[in-house]
């Protein structure tokens, strides 16, 4: 039974790392958003499973927030923005997909080696969750540096956030997880509203972050 419980948790957390890799090679906006929704669904399942095995009912709230806000509302809002701004084909990458995937594998190896080495005393579930969570965080960072498009940077940020929620849910009995996940959702909601209200496309003509980085009276 214990091994079964552990295997399911392992499967779900590992699934998040896998979906993070899928995010790295998406080359269409809508595809990227769909994969992100999948990321959030896997997170919700993983957190719900933690809630079940840790007998921590408050984690169900976190799982529900992940499912409703991040798997449904935000992807739908972003789909709408992408359609409105007509940027569905523009996933501009700075580094090619091949090197990015290789770098991603290196990061996963690094985070696993690091976290398993420093947490021999911690609970087995926390250990594997921390290792997977750090992988998801680093893959999210990798995505943010390899994408120039504003919407895909937000997706990268949200996948980092998912990794953090995974780590927080895995740390046994950690208080304030619900509050933290709410705080993070507010943050993301603000920026999604921000993109929408400020109509970055209208003002900047592009959501390519590099194009925002223009002459500022200092660069020549």
């Amino acid at each position: 039974m214990t091994s079964f419980v552990y295997d399911i948790a392992h499967l779900l957390a590992g699934g998040m790392v896998l979906v993070s890799f899928m995010l790295l090679y998406q080359d269409r906006m809508h595809g990227l958003l769909n994969v992100f929704a999948l990321h959030a669904v896997v997170l919700a399942l993983s957190v719900a499973w933690e809630a079940l095995i840790q007998h921590a009912p408050h984690l169900f709230i976190t799982a529900a927030i992940a499912l409703v806000v991040k798997a449904i509302i935000i992807p739908l809002a972003l789909h709408r923005i992408v359609r409105r701004l007509k940027i569905h084909r523009e996933v501009e990458v700075v580094v090619g997909i091949g090197p990015t995937m290789l770098a991603g594998m290196g990061l996963v190896a690094l985070s696993t080696a690091l976290m398993l080495r420093v947490t021999p005393a911690a609970d087995a579930l926390s250990r594997q969750d921390l290792a997977f969570a750090l992988s998801v965080v680093l893959l999210g960072l990798l995505m943010m540096v390899t994408r120039r498009n504003a919407v895909s940077q937000v997706v990268g940020l949200m996948s980092i956030e998912n990794g953090l929620i995974l780590a927080a849910a895995g740390a046994k009995g950690m208080p304030l997880v619900v509050e933290i996940s709410v705080a993070f959702s507010v943050l993301v909601a603000f920026i999604v509203i921000g993109i929408f209200l400020f109509r970055i496309r209208e003002r900047f003509d592009t959501v390519d972050v590099q194009a925002l980085d223009r002459f500022r009276g200092e660069r020549q």
């Binding site: 947490t119 911690a122 926390s126 921390l130 969570a133 750090l134 965080v137 960072l141 943010m144 504003a150 940077q153 940020l157 980092i160 956030e161 953090l164 780590a167 927080a168 740390a171 950690m174 933290i180 943050l187 920026i191 921000g194 400020f198 970055i200 003002r203 900047f204 972050v209 925002l212 980085d213 500022r216």
Partner: peptide, 29 residues
């Protein structure tokens, strides 16, 4: 310029506080 600055601040600030949250979780563990 203001929107650009706010965007940059938001993205870098969020990455910063994300890292800080991971550190906070590790302190708890």
């Amino acid at each position: 310029e203001a929107l650009e600055a706010a965007w940059k601040y938001f993205i870098l600030g969020s990455v910063g506080i994300a890292l800080a949250l991971f550190g906070t979780i590790l302190v708890y563990v």
